[in-house]
Amino acid sequence: MKKHPERPVLITDAARSQDDQLRSRQIRYVSMMSVRALCLILGGVLISAQVPLLPVWLVLCALGMVLLPWMAVLIANDRPPKTKEERAADAAAREDVRRALTPPVEEPDYITIDSEVVDEARRRTD
């Protein structure tokens, strides 16, 4: 029986290294640009082969050649999504900044009149 190598156990909450993130973004970019090159080659082959519905296929190839570079750049420059802990830490930091910039509200001193004391004062004067 063949043993499968076990994947390493994750023992940290640290994010992936910058090199790993860059490498995965580069792979996504190159694969998307390869699809763009395939759209260009496919468009040339379709024109020479005189296939049915040629305008539809050429429009799809042209859309791929125009939209894929734009999408590839956006995806390649995007960072990995934040974890719940990172979002919570960001929210706490924003709350701390908001509290530091907001002046404290002072409560006005309200005058409380005790009716029993007033009644006793009236009895004494009567």
Rank of each mutant, 00 (worst) to 15 (best):
H4A: 12
H4Y: 12
P5E: 06
P5R: 12
E6S: 15
R7G: 04
P8C: 06
P8M: 07
L10P: 00
I11G: 02
I11Q: 07
T12N: 02
A14H: 11
A14Y: 10
S17D: 05
S17T: 13
Q18T: 10
D19W: 13
D20T: 13
L22G: 00
L22R: 09
L22M: 06
L22Y: 10
S24R: 13
R25N: 12
I27E: 04
I27P: 00
I27Y: 02
Y29V: 09
S31Q: 14
M32V: 04
M33E: 15
S34C: 02
V35T: 13
A37P: 00
C39Q: 12
L40S: 15
G43T: 03
G44T: 00
G44F: 02
L46M: 09
L46V: 03
L46Y: 10
L46R: 03
L46D: 01
I47T: 08
Q50R: 13
L54N: 06
P55C: 06
P55E: 08
V56K: 08
W57K: 09
W57Y: 14
V59H: 05
V59C: 12
L60A: 15
C61H: 06
C61A: 14
C61I: 01
G64C: 03
M65W: 05
M65F: 07
V66S: 04
L68S: 02
P69V: 03
M71E: 01
V73L: 11
L74I: 07
L74Y: 08
I75M: 09
N77S: 15
N77C: 15
D78I: 01
R79I: 05
T83D: 06
E85R: 14
A88F: 13
A89Y: 07
A91D: 10
A93G: 03
A93I: 10
R94F: 01
E95N: 09
D96P: 02
D96V: 04
V97L: 13
V97A: 14
V97N: 05
V97S: 07
R98N: 01
R98Q: 04
R99Y: 06
R99T: 06
A100K: 13
L101I: 00
P103R: 10
P103A: 02
P103K: 05
E106H: 01
E107A: 06
Y110P: 04
I111H: 14
I113V: 14
S115Y: 14
S115G: 15
E116P: 06
E116F: 11
E116Y: 11
V117Q: 12
A121N: 03
R122P: 05
R123H: 10
T125S: 03
T125P: 00
